[in-house]
Amino acid sequence: MSAVPLPAPAAARPRLAPWLLRLHRPALYVWTALVLLTAAALLWLGGPLTDAAASAWDQYDACDWSAHCSYDQPAILRYKDVANYTTLAVTAVPFLVAAWAGAALFGREMESGTAQLTWTQGVTPTRWLTTRLALPAALITTGTSLLVLLHHLAWTAGEGRIDTAKPWYDTLTLHANGPTTVALALTGLAAGALAGLTLRRTLPALCVSLLAVACARGLADLAMPHLWPAVTRVTDLRQDPAGTGLTVDEGLVTATGRHIADPGCGSTLAPECRALYERLDATAFYTDYHPASHYWPLQLTTTLALLTLTALLTTIGYVTLRRSTGGRRRGAAV
């Protein structure tokens, strides 16, 4: 008859957090370096680079082009390059997290059998998974939040001062400036965990994790404009469609008030456009859009949606692990 030993004393149970940090020390070093270097670049961007570029734009705007005029073009180009690179770095964080979580944190451990060995050392699968999610989640949230905050401050420092600065509704800038990037990074962690637990192989888990985050990001972009009521602006056909912000929809308004697609002809200043609009019975342009005042409502509703998805993926991960291990008890032996 098989014996079932008593649970190991608390003092004898492995301390998973220090062991996890030692095991993934290279990843911790890379993450720390990434955060520190990007943070330093963002501080440089929001301070000296913004001041130099703003001064250069003042010189450019004051130029009398009838005579020789000079301005600090390298400062403008330097600001643009650093702004683009730091924005890409911040928005890439969720994808890096997903790749690491799927490949190294879960996929490799399941493929090599290290996870299964840990479960025989007085550690339940549930505790193992909780530690592997909670500790990285804390580090990821802290580091990503810092980068998002610094990016937002750097962008704000150049708002209205740098003519070529990206608008708030630019896709990359919109996410790099707000908590959606933090939420998406946690989604990447949960997606990587689920992929690793399900596929149990490093490379497939890495690929599926990246695909999952890409899909989540795409869905967030599609859903965001519709998660908060938009503002409608109607303009005369003698003008071009107006409404600066995140566009939801635009087109023509007919005499009956119906909204139809805009053929893209332009204003009625062109005779051919005037004739076209008369045939369509169009009386005005309309634009459904989100102004700058909708920035935080859009950010917070999209963040909530991503966190809900993260919670769903995490729950599925626990269910998957429980089914694959048969709900085994700590220290059980057959």
Rank of each mutant, 00 (worst) to 15 (best):
P7V: 07
P9T: 02
P9M: 01
A10C: 00
A10N: 00
A10R: 14
R13D: 03
R15T: 01
L20H: 14
L23D: 03
A27C: 03
L28T: 05
Y29M: 15
A33D: 02
A33R: 09
L43R: 12
G46C: 08
P48M: 14
A53H: 09
A56P: 09
D58W: 02
Q59I: 06
C63P: 10
A67M: 07
H68P: 02
Q73R: 15
R78M: 09
A83C: 10
N84S: 12
L88R: 13
A92Y: 07
A92G: 09
A92M: 14
V93F: 08
P94R: 08
V97R: 05
A101Q: 06
L105S: 01
G107D: 05
M110V: 01
W119I: 08
T120Y: 08
T120E: 07
V123N: 06
T130M: 09
L133H: 05
L133Y: 09
L139N: 07
T141Y: 04
V148Y: 09
L150H: 02
L153F: 00
L153E: 07
E159W: 12
P167T: 14
W168D: 03
L172N: 12
T181L: 07
A183F: 05
L186Q: 10
A190E: 07
A190Y: 06
G192A: 06
T198G: 08
R201V: 09
L203M: 11
P204L: 06
V208S: 01
L210A: 00
G218C: 02
G218M: 02
D221E: 00
L222K: 15
M224Q: 14
A230T: 07
R238K: 14
D240G: 11
G245L: 12
E250L: 04
V253I: 15
H259G: 01
I260K: 13
A261T: 08
G266C: 09
L269F: 13
R274M: 02
A275C: 02
A275I: 03
D288Y: 13
Y289C: 04
Y289L: 07
H290P: 05
H290G: 04
H294T: 11
H294Q: 13
Y295E: 11
W296I: 02
Q299S: 11
T303Y: 00
T310N: 11
T310R: 05
A311F: 13
L312A: 15
T315H: 08
T320R: 15
R328L: 12
R329Q: 14
A332K: 04
A332C: 06
V334S: 00
